[in-house]
Design a protein around this nucleic acid. Structure first.
Lengths: 112, 112
DNA sequence: CCCAGGTTCCTTGTAGTGCAAGGATCCATG
DNA sequence: CATGGATCCTTGCACTACAAGGAACCTGGG
């Protein structure tokens, strides 16, 4: 699915939550995160989107990082959730559930 | 539910679709739209958000407007969906369904 | 007659987000 | 040593949500 203008707008603010979810499962470095997201067509993101977002999460204390040497390339910066990050993920999942359920309802009414 | 920073971000781009859905059910004027949205806590919007959004929809040809005299106040500007607006609502509903299903999946994986 | 208040419309300025484009660094290989 | 791949990051633009505030219209009381 191409990145239409609509999906661009729909995804605003959602990517942060998606990235927290990816990191909730496993510690990852940036390009790994991008690849995991790429498995979900509606959540595909480019480095230009992901890097600033990770920097924001780091600054906010939701993720922590460590450098890991990698054979055949520069070291990789691994990101993992902090305690605050896990709490934020849980909160976000709740907020998402509410939004999702209300959108389903209003869309059901409107499409009649 | 207060308008936390998270819900603000989650809603980006979603309000347009919600408004199209409201208008899909019935022709409304601005304040009526705001009231309908207010019935959904995660979708509450202020006039400062809704007016520019309606202007964008009008400019894009997704809605059409007409003035209706109202006793006890200034005339009301009623908005209704155009054919393009209905098509956009249908497209948006599809995009939303995809996003929603993928978010549910990735959140399920991440919250383990 | 007029002004106070409710209803409706709209604009402006700020902060936050997604993204394309491009640049910098490190390592292995030829 | 130069080329290429992998990894990291920054900059600038367009778009969105929102708070704050302003303008026009009508009714009803003094």
């Amino acid at each position: 699915m191409p990145t239409t203008d609509r999906t661009v707008q729909l995804r605003k603010g959602v990517l942060e939550l998606a990235i927290l979810a990816v990191l909730g499962r496993e510690e990852c470095y940036s390009i790994e995160i991008i690849e995991r997201l790429d498995a979900f067509p509606a959540l595909t993101a480019t480095p230009g989107t992901v890097y600033p977002l990770l920097a924001r999460l780091d600054k906010a204390g939701l993720v922590a990082t460590r450098w890991v040497e990698a054979g055949g390339g520069p070291p990789r910066k691994y990101y993992r959730l902090t305690r605050d990050g896990r709490a934020s993920l849980a909160e976000g999942a709740t907020a998402w559930a509410a939004l999702s359920s209300e959108m389903t309802e209003i869309l059901g009414e409107g499409l009649s």
